[in-house]
C-alpha cells in the first residue's frame, strides 16, 4: 500500500449560490494513477482544479473543507499558491502550448522558477523532459519551431513535458485525450503508465475504458458527490453502489 499524497475531507465547492461539490472525501495515493469518472457536469474537473487551487481564477468560486498535500493544508489564504502549483503540474483538456518555440515551451517553467543556472543545465532539463514525455525523438531536430506547429497528440505531450520540467510531485490531467485521435490517445496512455513510477497522477476522463486501462484507483462522481471510490479493478468488476453499477454498464451518464 502506497502513502497518501493528497487527502481531501468534506470539500464543498460553490459557484455563486450553486453548490458544485458536496462533502467530497478522497485520498490519493503516491505514485499511482487515480482516475475520476462520472457524467458531464458531475464536478470531477472542479474537484481536480481544487488540488492546485486553479479555482482561484474564477471569482465566484468558493472552496471550503480541507485538502492536504504532503500533510500540509492548502485551503488557506496563507498558502503560497505559486509554489504549490510548481509542485503540482497540470495538463488540460485542449493542448495549450504557448505561442513560443518547442524549446521555450518546456524551458518556461524552469526559467521562471530559477531552477537552472546555466544554459547547458536548462538544455539538459528540456531534453530530459521531452524524453520523459516521449516527444524528444520526434522533435529533436526542430526544437526552435513553434510549439503550435506540432500535431494535437504531440502538442499534448509537449504540455506534459512542460509540466514535468519543473519536477512536480503530482500531475493533474483534465481529460487529456478528449481532443485526440485514438492513436495519439494510446501513446499518451502508455506515457501515463510510465510516468506513474515517478509521479502521482490524477486523471479526469470521460472514457471508462481509459480509466480501466491506466488507473489503479477510481473515484466515481455523480451530481457533485463522490459516490464510490476504490481499486479500479473492483470498481469496474464489482461496484458496491447501484449508481456506479449503472454508470459503468452504460445505463446512464
Amino acid at each position: 500500500m502506497n502513502n497518501v499524497k493528497v487527502s481531501t475531507k468534506n470539500v464543498n465547492v460553490h459557484y455563486g449560490t450553486k453548490q458544485a461539490l458536496h462533502r467530497v472525501t478522497l485520498d490519493i495515493n503516491e505514485k499511482e494513477v487515480t482516475a475520476l469518472i462520472g457524467p458531464s457536469g458531475c464536478g470531477k474537473s472542479t474537484f481536480l482544479r481544487c488540488i492546485n487551487r486553479m479555482n482561484d481564477l474564477i471569482d465566484i468560486c468558493k472552496v471550503d473543507g480541507s485538502i492536504t498535500v504532503d500533510n500540509e493544508e492548502i485551503i488557506s489564504d496563507e498558502v503560497d499558491v505559486v509554489s504549490l502549483r510548481s509542485k503540482i503540474g497540470m495538463v488540460f483538456q485542449k493542448p495549450n502550448p504557448f505561442p513560443k518555440s518547442i524549446f521555450d515551451n518546456v524551458a518556461y517553467g524552469p526559467t521562471i522558477h530559477g531552477i537552472v543556472e546555466t544554459k547547458t543545465d536548462l538544455e539538459e532539463i528540456v531534453h530530459l523532459s521531452l524524453k520523459r514525455s516521449g516527444l524528444f525523438k520526434e522533435v529533436k531536430d526542430r526544437l526552435h519551431e513553434p510549439g503550435t506547429s506540432l500535431s494535437g497528440g504531440q502538442q499534448q505531450r509537449l504540455c506534459i513535458a512542460r509540466a514535468i520540467a519543473v519536477n512536480p510531485d503530482i500531475i493533474l490531467m483534465d481529460e487529456p485525450c478528449s481532443a485526440l485521435d485514438p492513436i495519439a490517445t494510446a501513446t499518451i496512455e502508455e506515457l501515463i503508465d510510465e510516468l506513474k513510477n515517478k509521479y502521482t497522477i490524477v486523471i479526469v476522463t470521460h472514457s471508462m475504458q481509459q480509466a480501466a486501462r491506466v488507473s489503479q484507483r477510481t473515484g466515481f462522481f455523480h451530481l457533485g458527490e463522490l459516490v464510490e471510490t476504490g481499486e479500479t479493478q473492483k470498481i469496474f468488476t464489482n461496484p458496491e453502489n447501484e449508481k456506479t453499477q449503472g454508470y459503468i454498464t452504460g445505463r446512464f451518464g
Binding site: 492546485n52 481564477l57 503540474g89 488540460f92 502550448p97 505561442p99 518556461y108 521562471i112 504540455c159
Partner: peptide, 19 residues
C-alpha cells in the same frame, strides 16, 4: 487556456502576463 497553462506551472500573474 494559455493563462491556465502558465499559472498551472506555477508562474505568477506578472510572469504570465509578461512572458
Amino acid at each position: 487556456s494559455l493563462r491556465e497553462g502558465s499559472l498551472g506551472i506555477g508562474a505568477n500573474k506578472a510572469e504570465t502576463i509578461k512572458r
